[in-house]
Design a binder for these strands. Structure first.
Length: 774
DNA sequence: CACGTCACTGTTTTT
DNA sequence: CAGTGACGTG
């Protein structure tokens, strides 16, 4: 088996996999099989007898973790892969922090504040301190606090650091005080923001020797993916965990470090060998993804950067064609050019829409492409932007859940205390906040005991407050006994949210209704799949919240859908690859970003960003820029990006001309059928209707009666006995798959199924919903 | 206290 | 051109 594993690797990859004797830095050029090395290395460790729960693998996105787990499952079997400690820094640490919450003075039910929550809290604090919100812009103050945390600077240290000196020079000396209040408020709210998940983990491990030792013993081997994008806090935590035994492997590419705005420090990877004295360096330089011209063009670009680890990335694929730059008159024409190219290449090469990606610097650029693709009937999917969970109606529901799970959660409480309107307005909330601050307690404590804290309100308002308190408490009592779907459904019905959203016949509310239904369907899926995976004790509302708090748009893929052109920012495209890539908007005021001051460090990062974009392409890489662009509601003139001159001119073909103009006449109906409303919907998650959706639609008026709590009937119950190894089944969510193993019988019958698109899953047949295909 | 209207302002990238 | 905040009215 070991032999087999290693035979599937090239020399460099094999050496990197086999070396397990000490700290290891793997510099992996773009497309050189970085993920392959990580997965094989983990499989190799498992084959050599290491227990899966002793291996910690930290990734950058949930998606990367999931995919890696799947691939490892194929190598060593899904049971072992399932037990690996694998996930993003944030999700792994959130779990540890819940287990150890007591040690750092938090409650295990703490809420995770997202960026919007953080900003909103900072904003309230600035307001309470009666500061001018022009000098103290909430978002930049929040960013600064975040940055401080990424450097492990606590409020007390911050106040006496050079950071505070800088603040004073910027005429905003009170940031330190805001930071300090912010930290207090988070603690009162029993909440942690994204950065706290790192900071608190660090504090936990640093100050509690027995806890640290426990995790050092547990994580006998630590692997970190995308190491070039780790920040100081992450580096220090990994160091705490691995300094003693040195069994650490970090993988990354300094040329793809693009997250400095989030605190990522390229020095982490550049200086790894200084942090770990015995560290060995491995380089992967053969690119398997792209044609030679693409690799060479990317090399010629990145060569212009000074700070980097030298490497010689090469490809032995076909030479391919040169990069093409297609200048356009306007953003509108740019979109037309791209759409025409998609149609042309698709026809010529007979490929799918999903073989194309349009990558841009900022989310706002998606607009013109969206419009054009809708006109042309090209199916597309936009990633990023505002994700599903950031929609107002969804955030409202989640806010209710958060308050039920953790009533101290200030941000969630403020969001829902008067939604739907129940007569508790701004004035009342203001008084509650003041009282809470005065006594250093949470808003919830004040609401529960208004007399104790001497809350001065009219009798009628106090009554309303108490009714609200009772409402929340009554759900809270059910949290241990009911699953997320049952309780969530009740909350939506009884809170008045459904009355609000279904009450009006206003057509604009239709999409809110659909979103709510989709959300409920998602909750039902969550409960069902956990049951199928035999994790029935992890189906509660808190488990659901933990899951959604760290989800991103990229995580909600629906593989089974029809192929679509992908639109996303370059940042979001990291780690992905496509046969044809369009890198659009290569103009001075976009790329490099005008926010970038022009310092060498920042400019080099922008250049790396373009490098990342180019290296996503397998066969075709087409660049565009527009002379005029609609911005701020005005037409603005722009010159081509300075980065265009960085390419070796012999590798870049410039295709002038305005021939695309003629295609403006492209009509809406075409060979791919008439304009379909489905395309008009950027969110492609419109799925087959679920039972829950019909429950809602059948009865547009809100029902305040309790819903039926029956578990959805497994349609397959009768067919269970008939299932054999080798059967092909169609699962409700995972699609088509082959049964590779059956275990247990009756209640506990389990099947291991290798799904075509969804990977290998273990299904508890009692709950699984599927039909046998053959 | 809720709701509507009006003016303003400011736009990178995200776990 | 949004999305937000301030202000006035019912």
């Amino acid at each position: 088996m070991n032999e087999n594993l290693l035979n599937q690797l090239n020399d460099g990859q094999r050496k990197a996999v086999e070396y397990c004797d000490g700290p290891q830095l793997v510099i992996a050029g773009a497309g050189s099989g970085k993920t392959r090395v990580l997965t094989y290395k983990i499989a190799y460790l498992l084959e050599r007898g290491m227990a899966p729960w002793n291996i910690l693998a930290l990734t950058f996105t949930n998606k990367a973790a999931r995919e890696m787990k799947e691939r490892i499952g194929r190598l060593v079997g899904p049971e072992r892969a399932q037990r690996l400690q694998m996930g993003t820094f944030h999700s792994v640490f959130a779990r540890i922090l819940r287990a150890e919450a007591d040690a750092i003075g938090f409650n295990a039910n703490f809420t995770i504040y997202d960026q919007a929550d953080s900003r909103s809290l900072v904003k309230s604090i600035i307001k309470e301190m009666q500061l001018d919100d022009k000098t103290y812009k909430p978002s930049s103050v929040a960013d600064r606090i975040s940055m401080a945390k990424n450097h492990l600077l606590l409020p007390q240290q911050y106040a006496v650091s050079s950071w505070a000196v800088d603040d004073a020079q910027q005429k905003r000396p009170l940031v330190a005080q805001i930071y300090s209040r912010y930290a207090e408020r988070c603690r009162q709210a029993n909440a942690m923001d994204f950065d706290d998940l790192l900071v608190q983990t660090y504090i936990l491990l640093l100050h509690h020797d027995e806890v640290r030792q426990k995790y050092i013993d547990r994580f006998q081997y630590v692997l970190v993916d995308e190491y070039q994008d780790t920040n100081y806090a992450q580096q220090e935590i990994v160091l705490l965990l691995t300094r003693d035994h040195g069994r650490v492997c970090v993988v990354g590419d300094d040329a793809q470090s693009i997250y400095s705005f989030r605190g990522a420090n390229i020095d982490n990877i550049l200086n790894f060998q200084k942090m770990y004295e015995r560290a060995q360096l491995f380089k992967l330089e053969q690119n398997y993804r792209s044609t030679q011209f693409i690799v060479q063009a990317a090399n010629s670009l990145i060569r212009k950067n000074e700070r980097q680890i030298h490497k010689n990335v090469f490809s032995e694929n076909e030479q391919g064609e040169r990069l093409t730059l297609k200048p356009a008159y306007s953003d509108k024409e740019e979109a037309i050019i791209v759409c025409n190219d998609i149609k042309r290449i698709r026809r010529k090469e007979g490929c799918e829409y999903s073989d194309f990606a349009i990558l841009y610097r900022t989310n706002a650029q998606s607009r013109s492409f969206e419009e054009q693709m809708r006109k042309d009937g090209i199916p597309y999917r936009i990633y990023g932007g505002l994700s599903f969970y950031q929609r107002k109606e969804i955030k409202d529901v989640i806010a209710y859940f958060r308050v039920v799970a953790n009533p101290s959660d200030e941000e969630a409480l403020r969001r829902i205390i008067n939604y739907p309107a129940r007569g508790i307005g701004d004035t009342t909330v203001g008084k509650i906040v003041d009282t809470a601050n005065l006594h250093n307690v949470s808003l919830w404590q004040v609401i529960c005991q208004p007399m104790v804290f001497d809350l001065k309100l009219a009798k009628a308002t106090l009554t309303k407050l108490e009714a609200f308190k009772d409402l929340i408490q009554q759900w809270g009592e059910r949290i241990e006994d009911e699953d997320a779907y049952e309780l969530g459904h009740s909350i939506i019905m009884e809170s008045g949210i459904s009355r609000d959203i279904y009450g009006s016949t206003n057509p604009e509310d239709l999409s809110r209704q659909e979103n709510l239904e989709e959300f409920l369907g998602g909750m039902q899926d969550f409960v069902l799949s956990r049951k199928e995976e035999d994790r029935e004790d992890e189906t509660g509302l808190r488990d659901f919240l933990q899951e959604v708090a760290l989800l991103t748009d990229l995580d909600s893929d629906n593989d089974a859908e029809q192929p679509k052109v992908v639109l996303m920012t370059i940042h979001a495209a990291k780690g992905l690859e496509f046969p044809t890539v369009f890198v659009v908007g290569l103009e001075e005021n976009i790329f490099p970003s005008p926010m970038c001051t022009g310092s060498m460090r920042e400019l080099e990062e922008e250049r790396r960003l373009l490098y990342v974009a180019i290296t996503r392409a397998e066969r075709h890489c087409i660049l565009t820029c527009a002379q005029n662009r609609f911005r701020y509601g005005r037409m603005e003139y722009d010159t081509p990006s300075r980065f265009i001159k960085d390419f070796d001119p012999s590798l870049l073909r410039i295709e002038g001309g305005n021939n695309a103009i003629h295609s403006t006449t492209t009509t809406s109906g075409n060979a791919f059928g008439p304009r379909q409303p489905a395309f008009a919907r950027p969110r492609a998650t419109t799925q087959n209707p679920r039972p829950v959706a019909t429950q809602f639609m059948a009865d547009p008026k809100p029902r305040l009666v309790p819903v039926r709590h029956e578990a959805p009937r497994p349609q397959s119950a009768a067919g269970d006995i008939g299932l054999k190894e080798g059967n092909v089944i169609e699962h409700q969510r995972f699609g088509i798959g082959t049964v590779v193993r059956l275990e247990g019988s009756g209640e506990n019958a389990k099947a291991t199924v290798d799904f075509k698109n969804a990977g290998t899953k273990q299904l508890l047949l009692k709950f699984a919903k599927y039909t046998i295909v053959r």
